[in-house]
């Protein structure tokens, strides 16, 4: 089955990105496909490569990049939300790309299920 994922909250402040990540990992382990992860609202902050968590904490951004590389997942950052928050191509972590809200709607059309994680 193809899953579309929406993440509305930034890393570390709220559990949304953690839950979404663990959901995606479990779905992939079960042989499902993650069609796209769409980062929306403050969720665009998950895409900043300038993130530097303390050594003993999980690296949420790097974790998404790694998952995307290993499973060829499309990580899309909402352009309007990103520009409002200073997320641009030059500080985008590997595996992420910036695009429009049409990508969210397209995921809703193409995926078998859409799951939203947020506050």
């Amino acid at each position: 089955m193809k899953f579309g994922i929406v993440i509305n909250e930034g890393p570390y402040q709220h559990q949304a990105s953690d839950t979404a990540y663990l959901f995606c990992k479990a779905a992939l382990e079960k042989g499902h496909e993650i069609f796209r992860v769409f980062f929306y609202h403050d969720g665009v902050n998950n895409a900043s490569r300038l993130t530097e968590p303390p050594q003993d904490d999980r690296n949420i951004v790097a974790r998404w990049s790694k998952l995307a590389e290993e499973h060829k997942i499309d990580l899309v950052v909402c352009v309007a939300a990103a520009l409002r928050r200073g997320i641009k191509d030059e500080n985008l972590a590997p595996g992420f790309r910036i695009s429009g809200l049409g990508q969210l709607v397209e995921a809703g059309i193409q995926a078998d299920r859409m799951v939203t994680f947020g506050d």
């Binding site: 429009g100 809200l101 049409g102 969210l104 809703g108």
Partner: peptide
């Protein structure tokens, strides 16, 4: 998102 979804003829 509502307006974009309508533009996709959904």
């Amino acid at each position: 998102v509502v307006l974009i979804t309508a533009a996709f003829d959904q």
